[in-house]
């Protein structure tokens, strides 16, 4: 059942005949208007719970789930997380995250290549959002399609691992333009790779001069403190915003 977003069964068609004349009508409606409307609904509901919401985007295998596992474990008792994990198939990610003790739900998109605001709105229905500080939405591993769909998040966080090549921001500019933060992951592997991290950062800033960049390894733990500080600042700003209302 869904009364808010219009996903209830369609109304029956009218069965009486009219005299119709062929005519042209102006519509001028954005294709993403519906997603945008649902995203704004999500955003309002997240704001009511003072929830800091991040949309994690990357190519498959960059380490989104591993970053979440480590983050949720290290910040246990300090920040309450809730996680929505998107994948085409399997509950594998949700199982890994559930092992940290955080509430998690897997959303399988089937043939879909991205999460949309509708899936997220329904995905969080069973969560106690009032008990959470941060909602992490782990998007489907895909650097193209998720860029176009607002989910109601505060920030898109793009994860790029050093095994992928430093020119990813140039190859998928729309995603790095949509992101406010880029995490360069697996930096413990840098000694073994020909990955020019300064060049990577320069490419990202060419696409998005405002993007904030953090370097880390969820394996060695290097750089994780800066990421945690960023998360804590986000949570604090949400609370400040709520108390000033």
């Amino acid at each position: 059942m869904c009364t808010d977003c219009g996903c209830a069964p369609p109304q029956p068609e009218h069965d009486h005949k009219h005299d119709h004349a062929s005519r042209k009508i102006r519509v001028e409606e954005n294709l993403l208007a519906k997603n945008q409307r649902l995203a704004m609904g999500n955003r309002a509901s997240f704001a009511a719970h003072q929830l800091f919401v991040l949309n994690l985007v990357s190519s498959p295998g960059s380490g989104k789930t591993s970053i979440l596992e480590r983050t949720l474990t290290d910040l246990k008792g300090k920040i309450n997380f809730t996680v929505l994990a998107g994948d085409q198939q399997t509950d594998n990610d949700a199982e890994r995250i559930a092992a940290t003790g955080a509430p998690v739900k897997q959303v399988n998109t089937g043939a879909g290549c991205h999460l949309d605001a509708h899936m997220v709105g329904h995905g969080v229905e069973d969560f106690d959002l009032a008990a959470a500080d941060i909602l992490m939405i782990e998007n489907v591993g895909n650097l193209v399609c998720p860029a176009s769909f607002d989910l109601g998040e505060d920030h898109k966080v793009a994860v790029l691992s050093v095994t992928e090549g430093e020119d990813k921001p140039l190859k998928y500019p729309q995603m790095f333009q949509a992101a406010d933060l880029m995490l360069i992951n697996k930096i413990d592997l840098l000694p073994y790779l020909r990955f020019d991290i300064e060049q990577c950062k320069a490419f990202a800033r060419q696409v998005n001069p405002q993007i904030k960049i953090l370097e880390l390894s969820c394996h060695s733990g290097e750089g994780m403190t800066e990421w945690y500080d960023w998360l804590k600042a986000g949570v604090a700003s949400k609370r400040r915003m709520a108390s000033s209302l």
Binding site: H20, S22, R23, K24, I25, R26, V27, E28, N30, L31
Partner: peptide
């Protein structure tokens, strides 16, 4: 960046 339905002909 737009992608919009502008107009259509109906009968």
């Amino acid at each position: 960046q737009e992608m919009a339905l502008i107009e259509m002909e109906i009968d």
